[in-house]
């Protein structure tokens, strides 16, 4: 009741004294703002300013230095007519779909298998084992894959020769048709990574009673996996979907060091094309427009993902 009166008086107060109240509360916690200053100075400078600057400059023809001219939506019109944009978007979609298909199967299987081990000591051993490759610097792993695909002496061609299928040996990364697939294949068998750990943590969070109940009901192992365990790791699946989509939209370092978009432009992706426009051709405005497009697509997909997959979690929660 007292609460109610206070609220009514506060809302009935003239706005000037409401401000005074807020001001008093603010001065009471002066320290708070002071302590938050480093955080906000940094994010305003290194995160907000560049992001807003990128959105703003996507409407300009800009070389990043002395030439800047407002051109409205011209950059976006240019993008629609730029065949490299469409090619790179197509590659991005292909890479994302394949990455999704991989991340929703292989690590899930590995996580489920480790979860079903009865020997918990060995289960822990496998868990540690599949973390180790993540500790190897990402670029070292990629350089090893570059060697695997080496046309002359690479591991893949040598294996093919060793098993008498030398006719299939190819310059994998130098082949217009194959380069993109070679990039998708990097990391095979795709079980050593964060996805396996995330699935495993999801399985381990399932209440024992649920699994026991399903076992008592006499459900087969496959049925239990499909009807009990899988629905209960849907929030992990959702997370992996988000991480994979964001990862393949943004990450162009892999393409850059493996093929640099080549041969020709056959493995070009938008991120790398943005980089080229900015660093090679000095088209900073156009690069910002590509960044803006990627930002908008990411926003839409994240929104769709949260909406669409949330409902399925609620459904399984019933």
């Amino acid at each position: 009741m007292a609460q109610l009166t206070v609220e009514r008086t506060s809302s009935a107060m003239p706005s000037s004294s409401k401000w005074a109240l807020t001001l008093r509360r603010m001065t009471r916690c002066k320290e708070c703002y002071l302590l938050l200053t480093p955080t906000f100075v940094l994010i305003l400078l290194f995160n907000y300013y560049p992001a807003l600057s990128a959105l703003y400059h996507s409407f300009f023809q800009w070389n990043g230095a002395n030439f800047k001219r407002f051109t409205g939506i011209n950059n976006f019109v240019l993008m629609v007519h730029d065949p490299t944009i469409w090619l790179s978007l197509g590659n991005m979609v292909k890479l994302t779909l394949v990455a999704l298909a991989i991340n929703l199967t292989f690590p899930l299987m590995a996580g489920a298998l480790i979860f079903h081990l009865r020997d918990l000591r060995l289960a822990y051993f496998y868990r540690v084992l599949f973390v180790v490759p993540m500790v190897v610097p990402g670029m070292v792993t990629l350089m090893i894959w570059r060697f695997i695909y080496n046309p002359n002496i690479g591991l893949l061609n040598q294996i093919l020769k060793a098993i008498g299928m030398g006719a299939l040996a190819r310059p994998w990364l130098g082949d217009f048709k194959l380069a993109l697939y070679a990039i998708m294949f990097i990391g095979f068998p795709w079980v050593a990574g964060i996805s396996t750990l995330i699935y495993l943590a999801g399985f381990q969070a399932i209440p024992m009673e649920l699994l026991d109940a399903a076992a008592i009901d006499g459900a087969s192992a496959w049925k239990r996996f499909w009807n009990v365990e899988l629905p209960l790791v849907m929030s992990q699946v959702k997370l992996i979907v988000i991480l994979t989509v964001i990862g393949s939209f943004q990450g162009f370092a892999t393409i850059m060091v493996m093929t640099n978009g080549g041969p020709g432009t056959s493995t070009m992706v938008p991120g790398l094309y943005l980089y080229r426009n900015a660093m090679y051709y000095n088209k900073m405005g156009y690069a910002c427009a590509i960044g803006t497009m990627l930002f908008i697509i990411t926003l839409i997909l994240t929104y769709l993902n949260t909406r669409y997959l949330k409902s399925s979690v609620e459904f399984t929660g019933v």
Partner: peptide
């Protein structure tokens, strides 16, 4: 909300900064 902003978007202005 900064978790939503991709690194590729900020790359060019951050470099110029």
């Amino acid at each position: 909300s900064l978790l939503m902003i991709p690194g590729v978007l900020t790359l060019v202005p951050a470099f110029l900064l």
